[in-house]
Design a protein around this nucleic acid. Structure first.
Length: 334
RNA sequence: UGGGGCGUAGCCAAGCGGUAAGGCAUCAGCCUUUGGAGCUGACAUUCGCAGGUCCGAAUCCUGCCGCCCCAG
């Protein structure tokens, strides 16, 4: 990776710096990642990394060397408002005089706004997304033409800091040694045993090893009983959820219910929804409640809910609990 | 031990004389800047065991073993 970057910078005649942020990464990405899993949630470390590393520490470093913006290869667009029209801040950086918006990238299949919903106004107004108006295909084409060594580097990767042995092994190495416990179906019958709650996630199907005539999915993790709750695919759908640590991008504050669409997971399909703010003093620090127009599969605590209005990212937050869990986890989630 | 039923892959299960459906689970690949999901492919030389009938049986007959149900 670092090699590739250096090589491309060299081709471009751009100075290349290396800064060591392993300490920060450990504290701000990995530690919370492990803590979340250990508490029965399913975190998305990429979202944390974007907010703390790429647009946090990296932007800070950039400013130290006199750079005003950070440019990344995310497939998203940022825009400022001039008069009444939005102006792409990459095309016209000075446009960000008022609020800076985050919009889906042109390549909808590659859109990464979900992973950037946590950025602040300061971060967004000092970011450039040159790939926002291109498709992945275009980008590779351009890279090939210019002769970048990275032109054909494969897309995929899993959690960057987790090896091929998988996140479960990673957690174990990090001292997560949970107690095995029972697996219950939605009628309360014990149907099996689990090897430790952190090793499962809502919506999971594989690895349960249940002897059932039909496919079973994890419906919820019951931390207080150290039990895994499973059900049929239908039983894993939710009509809504509660969201905390809300980060609003399109507006300063949410005064009432808003309508739009939302996504409940990275690369998920969006669904029409309504989001309304919760008053003060809500349990769990819940800040908003979202109702889906059509039930969503495997709405998972710890994952992000990102709310959209058209291509615009309205804001997002962390899923605290889904509606279907209300019945299954009688008031226990602390 | 009088009557009835059933034993097909780890689990569920079709087939009832013509040469082993399907589903779950499992494994592999694809997909993918999170976890999952999804998609594709693989997966019983063999039908509780032993004989017999037949050109041919998981399917018919006999015996044995193991379960279940109803009566005593």
């Amino acid at each position: 990776m670092a090699r590739d970057a250096a090589s491309v910078c060299n081709d471009l005649g751009v100075p290349h710096y290396t800064v060591n942020m392993t300490e920060e990464f450990e504290e701000e990405v990995i530690v919370p990642f492990v803590r979340d899993y250990a508490s029965g949630r399913t975190p998305n470390p990429c979202i944390t990394c974007n907010r703390t590393m790429k647009f946090g520490h990296l932007l800070r470093k950039a400013r130290e060397i006199g750079a005003e913006y950070v440019a990344t290869g995310h497939y998203v667009r940022a825009a400022g408002c001039q008069d009444d029209t939005m102006v792409d801040t990459f095309v016209n950086p000075v446009a960000g005089s008022g609020r800076t918006y985050l919009l889906r990238g042109k390549d909808k299949s590659k859109d990464q706004t979900y992973a950037l919903y946590g950025l602040t106004q300061d971060m967004l107004s000092h970011s450039m997304f040159p790939l926002g108006n291109l498709t992945k295909h275009d980008v590779r084409e351009m890279a090939r033409k210019v002769g970048f060594s990275t032109a054909d580097r494969p897309d995929s990767q899993e959690i960057c800091f987790v090896t091929s042995s998988g996140y479960r092994a990673f957690l174990a190495n990090r001292g997560v040694h949970p107690e095995p416990g029972p697996i219950f179906d939605t009628s309360g019958r014990q149907v099996g045993k689990h090897s430790g709650l952190p090793f499962y996630t809502v919506g999971q199907r594989k690895g349960l090893g249940l002897e059932s005539g039909t496919a079973m999915y994890v419906v919820a993790l019951d931390v207080t009983r150290n039990a895994l709750l499973v059900g049929t695919r239908e039983e894993a759908y939710s009509t809504g959820c509660q969201v905390k640590v809300l980060n609003l991008i399109a507006v300063q504050s949410m005064d009432g219910p808003v309508t739009g669409t939302c996504m409940v997971r990275y690369r998920g399909k969006e669904t029409a929804a309504q989001m309304r703010p919760c008053g003060m003093g809500t349990a769990l620090g819940v800040e908003a409640t979202v109702d889906f127009q059509t039930p969503q599969f495997a709405v998972t605590p710890g994952q992000a809910l990102v709310f959209y209005q058209g291509d615009l990212v309205y804001g997002g937050g962390v899923i605290a609990r889904s509606s279907s869990m209300q019945d299954l986890l009688p008031g226990n989630q602390k």
